[in-house]
């Protein structure tokens, strides 16, 4: 009896979950950074215009 399907499923599940967690974290970080930059830039530019 071969146990290959069990081994393959275990590794597939682990790698799949790691990739999922990693990419969602990276995308979330990128989005947050872009939004923060977009807020900061006009705010700073505005402040300079105010002075």
């Amino acid at each position: 009896m071969t146990h290959l399907p069990y081994i393959a499923t275990a590794y597939g599940m682990t790698i799949g979950l790691a990739v999922l967690l990693g990419t969602t974290a990276a995308l979330r970080l990128r989005r947050a950074r872009a939004r923060l930059a977009a807020i900061d830039r006009p705010a700073r530019a505005g402040r300079r215009e105010d002075q």
Binding site: G22, A26, R31, A32, R35, I39, D40
Partner: peptide, 20 residues
């Protein structure tokens, strides 16, 4: 690495909320 990335994103998100 994943926790630090998520935490950085969370800090940035809270800054975004505060700024807004």
């Amino acid at each position: 690495a994943i926790v630090v990335a998520r935490l950085r994103a969370a800090v940035m998100e809270s800054r975004i909320r505060a700024a807004l």
